[in-house]
Write a protein that binds this DNA or RNA. Sequence first.
DNA 1: AATGACAGCCGCT
DNA 2: AGCGGCTGTCATT
Length: 190
Amino acid sequence: MSISWVTVGTPLPSGPVRVAVTDLGVAAVSFAGETVTGVPGRVGLPDCADEARAQTVVARLADYFQGRSRAPGLPVDWRFTSGPHRVVLQTLLAEVPYGATITYGELARRSGVFDELTEVGGVAARAVGQMMGANPLALLVPCHRVVAADGLGGFGGGPLGIETKRWLLTLEGVLPATLDWNGPDPAVLP
DNA sequence: AATGACAGCCGCT
DNA sequence: AGCGGCTGTCATT
């Protein structure tokens, strides 16, 4: 299996992202400095084995960040996820479109991987929170659209992480733009 | 195989 | 508004 890591510049507060590409699609997207577990070669230098494929990834993500598309539209290589984690991620991708949000608890319920008797007390929601933190496919699987029942919830990547979540939700029109908003003009979004 | 760290939720003050 | 209890996953040892 060949795997290539590509660094992609973004307007996010967290800076560029690292994208792992395989023959089947995108295997991982991580914010700079963040470690992605379970994906080989995460500490190696960029290995752009296929320049054309890398350019496609860069172009699609740029379209998304500039408001020209509502989804990166890139194929996902799911091989580095498994079990309940994979089910929850796929449920999220399939059921929560651009501009929508879902709570941790609701996503847990929709995924159906948690025993119904254990849903009380927000236990399942907590497990989903941990899964989101371990999401190897940031941006592609929209973990930023998963929010707490009474607020924004959290995000990985340190103090900048929550700012990144805000930025993405602002891009998608869920949150109002702030004065220092550096994204595309909401008036020209599709 | 065991352990610890968590990106939550609910009910009660 | 602010506590505390309640758990299920996953990564690491």
